[in-house]
Amino acid sequence: MGARVITITSGKGGVGKTTATANLAVSLATLNKKVVCVDADIGLRNLDVVMGLENRIVYDLVDVVEGRCKLRQAMVKDKRVPDLYLLPAAQTRDKTAVSPQDMVALTDQLREDYDLILIDSPAGIEWGFRNALAPADEVIVITNPEVSAVRDADRIIGLIEAEERRIPVSLMINRVKPEMVRRGDMLSVNDVMEILSIRLLGVVPEDQEILISSNKGTPLTLEDHKTPAGEAFLNIARRVTGENVPLISLDQKGGVLRRLARMFGSSDST
């Protein structure tokens, strides 16, 4: 069967799907996995700019589906890491140009040659989401500790669980501000877990470096210097590969655990 296909989705837009996809893809590639990321947001493509590969696109996903080029020709190689490719979305077409069956056929072609295929799903629960879900072996749902994002995550999880085939779902909580959690002004990781009751894959703290990295088109996980969000993404990538990386709570009240964690060289975040 080859590669695992992991779809990254959220329901609500703007919670960090594309940033997470880019950073996970880079992290997994630095862990020596052969990775392809597929931008399934037809008409609103963004994974290319966040990854900094926008100037190297020749063909896109719709060109492949409609037979204008071979799959290989549409894949953009990221030269900064050993084995990372981007299959960009079409920008001038709408999402109905691709069907769920097309997505399954396309990923089946890729499975043999790669370890991981990450699909960046569009927001919403309709066509584009259905396309992104169709080939998924696993789904990562991203949410923010915020009422609207958690509500939409719940809806998405419900839709995935309603699928006939059982698809494992795990949760990534993005943009957590430990200081606000401590003040009681932000839902904690535990609050979100209590409400959504699914497996927690990881927590990423709010980090200004994220915006700076997308300004530059260099995913944080490519930078030499360590950043809280970059470390968190790397930990999540390691968990995706099956490594047992313990979760460290961001919202420990006493902060003792966090200091201890830092002392032992693990990140403040998870």
């Binding site: 009422v147 509500r151 719940d154 419900g158 009681g184 839902l187 409400i195």
Partner: peptide, 19 residues
């Protein structure tokens, strides 16, 4: 209640209806 507590309770209620 803190605003996070309010968020948690409101979410629980609205999700009962949603689900």
């Amino acid at each position: 209640p803190s605003s996070a507590e309010l968020a948690r309770e409101r979410l629980k209620l609205v999700l009962v209806t949603d689900r």
